[in-house]
Computed example of a mutant assay.
Amino acid sequence: KANFVNERLPDIAKLDEIVNTTGSDSSSMDNMLEVLLTGGMELHRAVRMMVPPAWQNVETMGAELRAFYEYNSMHMEPWDGPAGVVMTDGRQAVCMLDRNGLRPARWVITKNGYITLASEIGTYGYKPEDVVAKGRVGPGQMLAVDTQTGEVLHTQDIDDRLKSAYPYKRWLKQEASYLESALTELARFQTMDTDTLNVQQKMFQVTFEERDQVLR
């Protein structure tokens, strides 16, 4: 909790729980998002930090956008779904999918100025000739509407704003410290008997799939 202390949240460390442990996954995410927004973080950045796309292995991603995701990944682990999330801070209305993209989210803009987003087609009665634009929110993508200006922001628009808001690339170069190790260093560790190994694997939640498909 101390990581989130600032001038707007000076006493947050005194709270028993920032995120409730008895409610649903959605309520826990809502708690965390509320903390970030109350602390002064912009909505798009907050949700991108909490539910980022699968950015690590995208070779075509620009250096500035990669720096944004890498910097924010150092603050918390991603909240993965499968999930389709809709939210608002009173001005921005946002829909996004997690990196798996298993929840359908289709949107339509009509001539009367309405934008409809739902998992199914036909939730709003409109004529085909009244459609101005339509599409879908894909895995790790976002769609936002600024209710004050009427501007519709797609994933690229939001990413362009986020990557240029702060000098993330310079911050990483100047301030980030990376831990590096070689496999030869493992020789310093003592071998374990079967019972001790089983206890350690259970303690650190090493699954059979990880042992069979990753470690082996």
Rank of each mutant, 00 (worst) to 15 (best):
D16S: 06
G125C: 04
E129R: 06
R170Q: 13
L179Y: 12
E175I: 13
L65R: 01
A63K: 14
V206T: 15
C95D: 04
E180K: 13
E17T: 12
P167F: 04
D30W: 02
I12E: 00
Y114C: 10
G135P: 00
D212A: 15
P52A: 13
R106D: 05
V58R: 12
A83R: 03
P139K: 04
M61S: 10
Y166V: 02
L117S: 03
V108F: 12
P82L: 09
M50F: 08
D130N: 11
R106H: 14
M96W: 03
A63H: 06
K1G: 08
E42W: 06
K14A: 13
V131H: 04
P82N: 08
L215Y: 14
M76Y: 04
E64T: 04
E7K: 10
L36M: 09
T155M: 02
Y71S: 07
N6K: 07
Q56V: 11
D11H: 13
D212V: 10
V94Y: 07
M96P: 03
G62Y: 01
V85D: 00
G40F: 11
V85I: 15
T22G: 06
V137F: 05
L102M: 12
E210R: 06
W171H: 05
T123Y: 13
T110W: 08
H154N: 08
V214F: 07
F4L: 10
Y71I: 01
